[in-house]
């Protein structure tokens, strides 16, 4: 459904952030993108919706080459790619509801959005999503009154109201505590399952990634050097991606978590105890 072909990005400074990345994401698959800082994970995600313009190769979403589109075509394709950010990137001085509805900006005209006159169907969907992420009572609060976890839930609602085909998720848990991190990851993965969404999730926390995703892609120096199931991540592979380190502890921790992850309710209760 989403296909990257020889995607390349060379920054003006001459840094080659991505070199000829080939990748295919089938419908409904959730992928974790791991790799050291500076490997090009953020650049890869931003090249897909062209917040960063790639310098070579193409991004093909359901047969449409996103890299060759003009500005109105690009806007139309961006609507189908929901994005979730590390620092939530909510517009702090707007209300929760306005932030969620801003996900519909690609669908409504300028004056409707200027006067906040969104179609009733959008408003209904916004309330439904806020209810789903557990923030219905916060609809009229200003975004800067929310906690980190709550803000990220609003971020998720904003991405989902776009009715996207794919979610681009940039370090969703990097600013959150361990428990909230798991809740947010679980929410994202559940939402993808419910709506048959594909997702690419940049993530630093390898064990957290292993808990939730079906496929892991390892990026290093702008190249894909690992692509496989989470349980194929051996200490050797992690050494190849990140460099020499004792990886046994990370992987063992993952095995423990895996038991918990199978029994979602049990894990939640254990977490609170």
């Amino acid at each position: 459904m989403l296909k990257l072909e020889k995607l390349t990005k060379v920054y003006k400074t001459g840094d080659k952030a991505l070199s000829e990345v080939d990748m295919e994401v089938p419908k409904g698959q959730v992928i974790a993108l791991i790799g050291p800082s500076g490997a090009g994970k953020s650049t890869l995600i931003r090249c897909i919706n062209r917040l960063v313009s790639p310098t070579g190769g193409s991004v093909i979403l359901d047969g449409v080459d996103v890299t060759s589109l003009g500005s109105s075509g690009l806007r139309r394709e961006r609507r189908r790619m929901g994005m979730i950010f590390q620092e939530y990137a909510l517009v702090e001085r707007l209300s929760v509801m306005e932030n969620v509805l801003s996900g519909r900006l690609g669908y409504v005209g300028f004056f409707r959005s200027f006067f906040r006159k969104f179609p009733q169907s959008d408003v209904d969907e916004a309330f439904r999503l806020l209810d789903r992420v557990g923030l219905l009572h916060m609809a009229d609060k200003r975004a800067d009154e929310l906690s980190g976890g709550q803000r990220q839930r609003v971020g998720i609602a904003r991405a989902l109201i776009q009715d996207p085909a794919v979610l681009l998720v940039d370090e969703p848990t990097a600013s959150l505590d361990p428990k909230t991190s798991r809740e947010i990851m679980r929410l994202i993965v559940e939402m993808c399952e419910e709506r048959k969404l594909a997702a690419i999730i940049n993530i630093h926390d390898v064990s957290l990634a292993q808990m939730f995703v079906q496929r892991v892609v390892g990026l290093k120096m702008g190249r894909i050097i690992f692509d496989g199931a989470p349980n194929q991540l051996t200490p050797d592979v992690l050494t190849e991606i990140y460099g020499e380190e004792d990886w046994e502890a990370t992987i063992e921790a993952v095995d423990d978590d895996d038991y918990d992850a199978d029994d979602v309710d049990g894990e939640g209760k254990k977490g609170e105890a």
């Binding site: 961006r78 909510l90 517009v91 900006l105």
Partner: peptide, 13 residues
């Protein structure tokens, strides 16, 4: 800039 980026990513004009 990330708040602006987020709005841009929704397909806003």
């Amino acid at each position: 800039a990330t708040q602006v980026e987020a709005i841009r990513a929704t397909g806003a004009s």
